[in-house]
Design a protein around this nucleic acid. Sequence first.
DNA 1: CCTACCGATCGGTAGG
DNA 2: CCTACCGATCGGTAGG
Lengths: 199, 199
Amino acid sequence: MGRRIVSKGELTRESILEGAYQLFLQQGYHGTSMRQIAAEAGIALGGIYNHFSGKEEIFTAVLEAYHPIHEIVPVIQASEGATIEEYVRNAAMGMMTALERQPGFLNLIFIEIVEFNSLHLPDLVDMTFPKVMSIVGPFAESQNKLKDIPLQSIVRSFIGLMFMQYFAEKLVGSQFVAMPLEEAFEQTLQIFLHGILAE
Amino acid sequence: MGRRIVSKGELTRESILEGAYQLFLQQGYHGTSMRQIAAEAGIALGGIYNHFSGKEEIFTAVLEAYHPIHEIVPVIQASEGATIEEYVRNAAMGMMTALERQPGFLNLIFIEIVEFNSLHLPDLVDMTFPKVMSIVGPFAESQNKLKDIPLQSIVRSFIGLMFMQYFAEKLVGSQFVAMPLEEAFEQTLQIFLHGILAE
DNA sequence: CCTACCGATCGGTAGG
DNA sequence: CCTACCGATCGGTAGG
């Protein structure tokens, strides 16, 4: 909201994070050097160590700063709709938009999986999933139009389908999406809605 | 089928591929050195270059040798069932088993995405997806019990849900799967089946 | 925050 | 002349 008052040191720290973020996305963690990060941030190599104890701490901080939850939770909260059908449709479009606007989210998670052997992934999920559940839960439970399936399974399937849809969009032009994207999105939504709504 | 007759050189080449595969899974591409690959294969560093022109060519060869399609297509082909419901259930269980037995498949693809910026991913998908479609197509189309949704969307959603389920299994113990795994698998299957079957 | 470096290791290649 | 390697070292770069 309000403009934060930041010291020069904080500005430097943030430019390190932003430079590192861009480089990690393009080259991965091990493929990115501390010298590249320093150059991107406009400082000398040694200067980095005034802000971070090492390369891994930079990655941790980037993971926190660019965490999907910051982008996606407000989108889901903003989702409204008279029926669950409308609500799901709005949430789905909001999530796709959020993913498209910040395509680096998934890559950071892939880096965590590939180059850190999923070391911090359980913590990450434990931090994220309850937040999503607490937002989705009240709305869904106030309705009686869902099949008798645990809300957790429903949310998990929703996320899985959105990720798959997102992958399909990244692969435009391949056989994987031989139909218009809007149409593919609609089909995925139909399968999900038929899957969760009571007759 | 029959036992291949392989020269000593071919055996060396294959041990390089296997060693590189294991190391890539644990450390990623840039995190793995040619010296580690050589040690894993039981030869000297220089010996590698009699079989591969460089590190990237090794990764390409590993991607080909351990391609998911080799494992998953026979599983789907072996899937039978009097009804689509049975068929889907068998295919789902077969795919989960295949993924669990070869957990490296997904990681190789993540390495491709993260460390090579998805350079060869479209080609990979174009090679794989049509094969799956040609196997699934005839069976599904011989039935009239599906909703009016393109087969391509159905297959894509199926793959998305299986991947999500697989991720959930890797995250056992976290909030993400607060129910028994068999139950979570069943719930995912219910959503999919309700989503695609005609009333 | 910089310059000047360190111990070690990187991917790749030399001659034999 | 080929293959399948070796011990040693190349020019550069890694994180700190």
